[in-house]
């Protein structure tokens, strides 16, 4: 049991999520049921030794809501775009595999960025280089170097949004410096 202890404060968002899953599955949000769910959540988190998820301990809801709305708009727009490409371009579509170096080196941030990018239609993560935190992304309809630059910028913007929501203080400071420069 060499697992490093994660403080309760850091673990709390994950426990709250587990209790929510429990309540939603029973469709019962009475205090008794939630309390039992909380006991189970703590037991599960203590007994199963998965690698700990290291949250940064910072979460800005003010940044999260506009980011989520923007994400939904992007997903909707890109869904229709993929639909259009399937119908209009079909077999003649041109793609690219683009390397995008990320700022953050935390596993959680690289995973979150990969998820957000994969969920927006038209791009999927082919390979991850963890040592340099570079994502290799297959993108639909990237025809020339200009498109590549544009695409890379959009991925880095998604990462910037995530850092503003839940990055560590250091990542946030580095991002501010970059924006100011």
């Amino acid at each position: 049991m060499s697992r490093r202890r994660v403080s309760l404060r850091q673990e709390l968002p994950l426990l709250v999520w587990l209790v929510f899953v429990w309540g939603a599955l029973w469709q019962n949000f009475t205090p008794g049921n939630l309390l039992f769910g909380a006991v189970l959540a703590v037991l599960v988190a203590r007994m199963f030794y998965l690698p700990p998820v290291e949250l940064s301990g910072r979460f800005s809801i003010l940044q999260a809501i506009p980011f989520a709305l923007q994400f939904l708009v992007k997903v909707a727009a890109a869904s229709f775009q993929v639909f259009y490409l399937a119908v209009a371009r079909g077999p003649k579509v041109t793609n690219a595999v683009v390397a995008v170096p990320l700022r953050s080196h935390s596993d959680l941030m690289v995973t979150a960025t990969g998820h957000v990018i994969s969920l927006i239609p038209g791009s999927l993560v082919v390979e991850v280089d963890r040592s340099t935190s570079t994502l290799y992304i297959h993108a639909l309809n990237v025809r020339n170097p200009d498109d590549v630059v544009k695409f890379r910028r959009s991925v880095r913007e998604a990462e910037a949004g995530l850092i503003r929501i839940m990055g560590t203080e250091e990542e946030l400071a580095a991002l501010k410096q970059e924006v100011d420069a």
Partner: peptide, 14 residues
């Protein structure tokens, strides 16, 4: 690869 885009992604919105 391009089929993967079509098969998985529009479903997120759908």
């Amino acid at each position: 690869m391009s089929r993967m885009h079509a098969a998985t992604k529009p479903q997120v919105l759908g």
